[in-house]
Amino acid sequence: MKEFWKRITDKYGYPKVLITIFLIILCIIAVIQQQNLPGLLKDSLVRIGMNGVLVLAMVPSINSGTGLNFGLSIGILCGILAGCISIELKLTGMTALIAAILMSIPFSVIAGYLYGLLLNRVKGDEMTVGTYMGFSIVSLMCIGWLLLPFQSPDMIWAIGGKGLRTTIALADKFGKVLDDFLSFNVLGEPVPTGSLLFFGLMCVIVWLFFKTKTGVAMIAAGDNAKFAAANGINVNQQRVIGTILSMVLGGIGIVIYAQSFGFFQLYTGPLMMPFMAVSAVLIGGASAKKANIANVVSGTTLFFALLAISLPVINKMMPEGNLSEVIRIIVTYGVILYALTKVGGDN
């Protein structure tokens, strides 16, 4: 048994194994509590489709050597901005969604480029700097949301108040358009086919990217900068490209998230969002130096299924307080903390 345990944890890492066990226990309790199992499955799938692209955004930044992208909130802001513009242009439905995605890309590219230049000057401290750059840009944008000249009555406060609302409802814009795309029912519950397909598509694109010449160079630069430099690869350039890609995926990711969630959350909404994505990819078995698509898919599935299932299960066990939220906090930061101590151990 001990042997087996060691082999399993060596192969998959503690976070993945422990989270899996925890998830299994929750599932068993759910069955005992006679929860609506197809409903839970649907919730899990919705959350996976909702968050998948955001988690995927970690892959280019990790592989290019800038580590976990704690500054992903900057890309997220780009996506929200693009989403707001799409609403301002009175677009609806799939058009609005596609417009939001396309418009987010130039913002993310510019932000990612500048952020990448910054990261090249703080090598070794990307995580700390990234976290606080993210925080400060989010708080700067708080002022931005107040002052930006948006006019759409769906976004600004109806009476009094200045600037955009804290949450912008997307129900009659592009809310759920992707979730409902090609949706079909399984056991009476709708499957968010479109979002899952889109997540899959993005995964394939990123997977293909890492097979290109640039992708190969990026992995080499991230794995061993000295090696890369000695073989004619421009390491700083690769890091910038990785950062840009990460931000672009972050921007797209939040649009997908919002479409499924039904709302854009402005102001301090994006503040802590990167940590969830970081945690998910770590649960999937990625490290601060290496990540692949399998890490993203398994991490997203485990983490968000856990959140989806823990909510009703734990609330039934303990109706008072917000225990499932507490569990989210403990899992998210516990996993990151574990990864940090592992990095330290290697040095």
Binding site: K213, V216, A217, I219, A220, D223, N224, K226, F227, A230, N231, G232, I233, K290
Partner: peptide, 29 residues
């Protein structure tokens, strides 16, 4: 072409396959 004195530090991607280690420079340059 250069074979570095720091084999493990500069010379190789240690966690990458032999085949990629062999072709990567040619592919990039």
């Amino acid at each position: 072409a250069f074979v570095s004195e720091d084999r493990r530090g500069v010379g190789l991607l240690l966690d990458t396959s032999i085949e990629m280690n062999i072709v990567i420079t040619s592919m990039q340059v």
